[in-house]
């Protein structure tokens, strides 16, 4: 038995109408829910294919959205905020622009904000200006030699170039791992800043670099709470680290934040 195409069109029309009412915000009571439910009920026994049943389910879901909108509509109309939109529109059309402006000025409480430059910022800007080369010098072509494309070194490259020794690096890495284990012996976790920041700034940067290695290897786990701006370290399990998906976390360390931490505790 061939199904009349019109039944499919009925479903598509119901879905379309419900979507328009929902997106355009028009009166949901314009949709004759009762009639559409009867249509769906009438056609339901004819559906055999999955696509047809999916279409039927979609139409039913759209009708339920309309019923939800009708509930919201009634609640809104019953609230004290409700004013007939047609009355408001009529008033706007009939009012003079001056009267509309006056109404807004009486209900307007503008945001107060300041724009100010601090003496420190002026001094920074002055230094910047003094150190800034003239445009023709900044954009002058490089004098001679072949221009190398920028690239990056990894640890193996540095070892190959004899910039660092692999053994030495492993020793330093082991020592920081041992230190972290000792700290974690008495505590469940250690705050990242408490562990990284030490008296000497260079040493602080080195500790951050070494810790990032331990985190990459999975020996240490870095937990970051972006809302609280907290980061802390716990011990990891190397076997598990290969199974868990990796992600990058960026923690900046600058001289200012280090100084602030050293002066009186946490950085802001």
């Amino acid at each position: 038995m061939t199904k009349p195409k019109v039944t499919h069109d009925d479903l598509l029309r119901i879905i379309d109408l419900c979507r328009v009412v929902e997106t355009r915000g028009s009166d949901p009571f314009e949709v004759d829910v009762q009639r559409y439910l009867t249509t769906l009920k009438k056609h339901l026994p004819r559906w055999e294919l999955l696509d047809e049943l999916m279409l039927d389910a979609e139409a039913l879901s759209q009708i339920t959205s309309i019923i939800r909108l009708q509930k919201k509509w009634i609640a809104y109309r019953a609230s004290s905020l409700y004013v007939d939109p047609l009355v408001v529109e009529l008033k706007i059309r009939l009012s003079a622009p001056e009267a509309l402006a006056k109404a807004l000025s009486k209900s307007w409480h503008p945001i107060v904000s300041l724009e100010q430059i601090s003496p420190k910022r002026i001094s920074d800007a002055f230094d910047y200006w003094n150190n800034l080369l003239p445009l023709d010098e900044r954009f002058a072509p490089l004098s001679q030699g072949e221009l190398m494309q920028p690239g990056s070194f990894d640890f193996e490259d540095l070892v190959r170039l004899k910039a660092v020794s692999a053994e030495e690096f492993k020793d330093v890495l082991n020592s920081i791992m041992l230190e972290l284990k000792e700290r974690l012996g008495s505590e469940e976790r250690v705050e990242y800043e408490d562990f990284i920041y030490v008296e000497d700034f260079q040493e602080t940067v080195l500790r951050a670099y070494l810790t990032s290695f331990l985190v990459s290897e999975g020996a240490v786990i870095l937990h970051v709470n972006p809302l609280e701006e907290e980061a802390y370290l716990t011990l990891g399990h190397l076997e598990e680290s290969s199974r868990t998906p990796s992600s990058s976390k960026v923690i900046t360390i600058d001289h200012e934040s280090w100084k602030m931490y050293m002066a009186g505790g946490k950085t802001e």
């Binding site: 008033k91 003079a96 006056k102 209900s107 409480h109 945001i111």
Partner: peptide, 23 residues
């Protein structure tokens, strides 16, 4: 967001409704 911060929308609607029109 700025309208919600700065403008008392209920007062605005009430004032517009209370505005005497030409008619």
């Amino acid at each position: 967001w700025r309208t919600r911060a700065e403008i008392d929308q209920k007062t605005l609607t009430n004032l517009i409704l209370a505005t005497p029109t030409g008619q």
